[in-house]
Design a binder for these strands. Structure first.
Length: 355
DNA sequence: GACACGTGGCC
DNA sequence: TGGCCAAGTGT
């Protein structure tokens, strides 16, 4: 009976903590204002949740501000040029998110009259919205009681109930536990509160159990296992790949760039033409230069680590005669070229050429 | 279930 | 320095 009573108190304890410790974010409505009946703009909630997928709040903040300033409503975004959206997203990573962001905006305008649906299943059908984001948007933007399960909530649940099953196999179990806690009252604040707790106090390394609002009921704290949870299945080592990129500048200052294919790595992003990136041991792939020129190798190399491999890139540069036609890509005049439109690995190659 | 898919900060 | 980690989704 005592256990039941205590479990019933858990959401209330966390909401009381959140009332005091909620972090300010540009897309968030403070708990006091939500209690007064104010809800955030669903467009803002959706935008922030897409950006926050596998990405820290610190990295997202400025991108979010720029996106909503440039495209204040979902209809504005739906009418944007693909290249403008991809360029604005450059540097944030996981570029399929940007492609799906644009797709989703256009579907919301075309099929939902420009208003995001509140219904979890309707949200789930939209491009780029999976189980987590559907739950986050319906709960945070509309106060529909849905359970969010992200990396934070997984960690908090694994510790609260001292679950030793390794991730990702433990997900269904952790979801079932999380669902038992989701309250009917203030579900949006509760969702944000659990994630705030995981991001600040119940952190992956050296959790601050001493100041945690759930320190008393937390089984892992009682048993001293908190820092070792959640368990995870070991990761595979990253192979090293090698390649070459070609930076060509015409006499008028134009740069030779290509838009990468929509599918696959850096899909839809601007980049320097180059070779394939291969797991070769010795010789680096050179590929074919995109234009006839006297190519000069740069000293040094670009090192970059993606999710699943390390990359070592050599950089060739050339100055091109005004009337030379490239076999790949197109020349972009200097006033149209923003290095910030490049994904980071391509910007590193550019930076190396400026040294 | 496994894998592809970015990036920057942290220790 | 190098591995780990972050508000996941699509295939």
């Amino acid at each position: 009976m005592r256990e039941t009573d205590q479990t019933g108190d858990l959401p209330r304890i966390l909401l009381d903590w959140y009332d005091v410790h909620a972090r300010q974010m540009p897309w968030r409505v403070a708990p006091a204002d939500r209690k007064a009946g104010q809800l955030p703009d669903p467009y803002h909630v959706w935008m922030s949740e897409i950006m926050l997928q596998q990405t820290t709040v610190a990295a997202v903040r400025d991108y979010f501000t720029r996106f909503v300033a440039r495209w204040p409503a979902v209809a504005d975004l739906a009418g944007a040029e693909d290249a403008d959206v991809m360029g604005e997203w450059a540097g944030l990573g996981y570029y399929a998110r940007a492609r799906n962001l644009l797709k989703c905006a256009r579907v919301v305008v075309a099929e939902h009259g420009g208003a995001f649906p509140a219904d979890h299943d309707a949200l789930l059908k939209l491009p780029g919205i999976g189980p987590y984001t559907a739950a986050a948007v319906s709960s945070i933007a509309f106060d529909v009681p849905r359970t969010v399960l992200d990396g934070n909530v997984e960690r908090v649940m694994a510790r609260l109930y001292d679950i030793h099953t390794p991730l990702p196999a433990a997900k269904p179990e952790l979801m079932a536990l999380a669902e038992t806690l989701t309250p009917q009252d203030r579900p949006g604040d509760y969702a944000q509160a659990v994630m705030d707790l995981g991001a600040t106090i119940c952190s992956p390394k050296s959790p601050a159990c001493g100041i945690c609002p759930w320190r008393d009921p937390c089984l892992a704290r009682t048993r001293g296992t908190a820092a070792d949870l959640p368990k995870k299945t070991p990761k595979k080592p990253k192979p090293v790949r090698h390649g070459t990129v070609y930076l060509a500048q015409r006499a008028d200052g134009a740069w030779l760039l290509e838009t990468r294919p929509d599918k696959g790595l850096l899909g839809g992003m601007l980049g320097w033409p180059g070779s394939e990136w291969l797991d070769t041991q010795e010789e680096r792939p050179m590929g074919e230069p995109p234009v006839q020129a006297s190519w000069q190798p740069l000293d040094g190399e670009v090192r970059h680590t993606f999710t699943h491999f390390h990359l070592m890139l050599s950089v060739q540069t050339a100055t091109i005669a005004a009337d030379t036609a490239p076999t790949k890509g197109a020349f972009i005049p200097p006033d149209k070229f923003r290095p910030s439109d490049l994904p980071t690995v391509m910007r590193k190659a550019f930076d190396l050429s400026r040294k």
